[in-house]
């Protein structure tokens, strides 16, 4: 079972392991050269990621359609009817229009709050091999993007800028396990800390127990000192479950994040903070139920029976 040469491999093996431990030690001590190497790696990879994004976008859309087939059968039925009418017009513009819609909503959101934003396209989804939730966008320091800037999607917070390169930037998504953001509950103004859990469901820990959380409560970003990394008032998510364990020091809850992280095509990086706090102005409007028309028929009995 043992291969010839295994014994002679011990010295090189030890040298390589010591080198790896040396690298870990340097990185733990925050030596800038290593982070520079990672930045150089992104600079090299960025053109390939852009090319890959352009070539693979139609394939990604195809698989996205296939995976959503079971979940939204009724929606597909409705869309199929619409699609028959619009197919010819939209064939060559489908991707562009989808991104335009996302962009418009993001700009509406940013405009309402008075944020100055830089828009960017997502050119790569991060690998899950390192259990991190990241994306790469096609704008970087040349567009004025810096580290620790907030990133918005059409629905609210998407993440925060983790690393910046000349023409691209790495975004740590709000679903990343290391992601933490201070939030306040719209209305009650309670504050707490939201933590990513690796999926669209995040966990919330309140600072105090003055009032009670309710399912459906909307959470907004609290904002940071000098608005970096987080600007105030951006929609984060809504509460889906409240943990009212007896004896708990502070209330905790499960939160559904507004942003659909599987469908991020266009995002906006907040490069300029608002003049004033937008308060609750960005709280998403609750969907209004469609009124069902009621028809009342009055029947007056005829004086003579009919045959």
């Amino acid at each position: 079972m043992r291969k010839a040469g295994a014994g002679s491999a011990r010295l090189p093996l030890i040298i390589l392991i010591v080198t790896a431990l040396f690298l870990i030690t340097l990185d733990l001590r925050g030596v800038g050269v290593l982070q520079g190497a990672r930045a150089a790696s992104q600079t090299v990879l960025s053109p390939f990621q852009r090319a890959g994004n352009v070539v693979l976008t139609p394939i990604k859309e195809f698989f996205s359609d296939v995976t959503h087939l079971g979940r939204t059968r009724s929606q597909i039925e409705r869309l199929r009817a619409d699609n028959a009418k619009l197919q010819t017009e939209l064939l060559n513009r489908k991707n562009a229009d989808a991104q335009l819609d996302q962009l418009k909503t993001i700009l509406d959101l940013a405009g309402t709050a008075g944020f100055k934003v830089v828009n960017a396209r997502v050119i790569s989804q991060g690998s899950s091999q390192s259990f991190a939730q990241t994306i790469t966008i096609d704008s970087g320091s040349n567009a004025g993007i810096k580290r620790n800037m907030m990133v918005l999607s059409e629905f609210g917070i998407a993440g925060v800028v983790k690393d910046v390169y000349s023409n691209s930037a790495l975004i740590s998504l709000a679903t990343d396990p290391s992601f933490r953001i201070g939030i306040r509950v719209a209305g009650s103004q309670q504050i707490g800390i939201l933590s990513g859990r690796g999926n669209r469901s995040a966990s919330l820990q309140l600072i105090d127990n003055l009032t009670t959380l309710q399912v459906g409560d909307v959470l907004l970003s609290l904002g940071s000192v000098a608005n970096r990394p987080f600007v105030p008032g951006v929609p984060v998510g809504y509460i889906t479950a409240v943990d009212n364990s007896a004896g708990a020091v502070a209330q905790s809850a499960t939160v559904h994040l507004y942003t659909d992280f599987n469908a991020l095509g266009v995002v906006a990086v907040v490069v300029g903070s608002p003049v004033r706090n937008p308060g609750d102005a960005l709280v998403p409007t609750k969907p209004q139920p469609t009124p069902t028309p009621t028809v009342t028929v009055y029947v007056t009995p005829s004086p003579t029976p009919t045959n």
Partner: peptide
């Protein structure tokens, strides 16, 4: 380790991969 999407310390994957491949 040099992958921009890698969350760990530089050297962590290196160490694991040396041992695993050997």
């Amino acid at each position: 380790d040099l992958s921009p999407s890698s969350a760990g310390l530089i050297g962590q994957w290196t160490l694991l991969m040396i041992v695993a491949c050997y």
